[in-house]
Amino acid sequence: MINTTFYLRRLHSICGLLALGGMLMEHIFTNSMALGGSAVFNAALETMELIPKPIFLGIEVGLIAVPFLFHGIYGIYIALQAKNNTGSYGYARNWQFLLQRCTAWYLLVFLIWHVGYLRIFTKGISGTPISYELVQSYISNPIIFVLYIIAMFAAIFHFCNGITTFCMTWGIAKGPRIQCVIDKLCMLMALALCLVTVAYMGSYLL
């Protein structure tokens, strides 16, 4: 028995959690260096530059781009199967279910722009290295700032809620109590990450 659907779904789950989740954490970690000011942030970026180019590119394509494309495209298919009904069934988990899909749509569009502009156009085609100053001038535009902060919140929620559903989907958390505990822990984590995000993004504006 092949059960393609099963493996695709599980792959979708795992690459969301590990690859994209890892990527998100890396972003938050690196960007939080901005709290230390220009020098610290730029130093962190330079450290990353130490990774040999072919390996770095390999990581970007194999561990980020491909999983992202798969997660995104298969995710569209999944999201299209839902008829959202929080109007009638306003339970917390149903709202989370809805938000998971809303954030997905937002992130899908956002990431095309974000990756397209900063990674492919700015860094790739123009060859301008990313730096504290570049980011600062970029997000000093209030519209971009707001879009970015929404995107970060969306990504953080999507990731943290994803951990909760991961625990259900993989049969790790079975009973209602453990599911509830994990849900709360994940939402707390989301809150913490959002606060960190506000802090470092705010620091650019100061």
Binding site: F6, N85, Y89, R93, N94, F97, Q100
Partner: peptide, 13 residues
């Protein structure tokens, strides 16, 4: 298979 338990989205309604 397709349409089986993997389509559960954990909305828990």
């Amino acid at each position: 298979e397709k349409g089986g338990i993997t389509s559960c989205g954990n909305s828990q309604n």
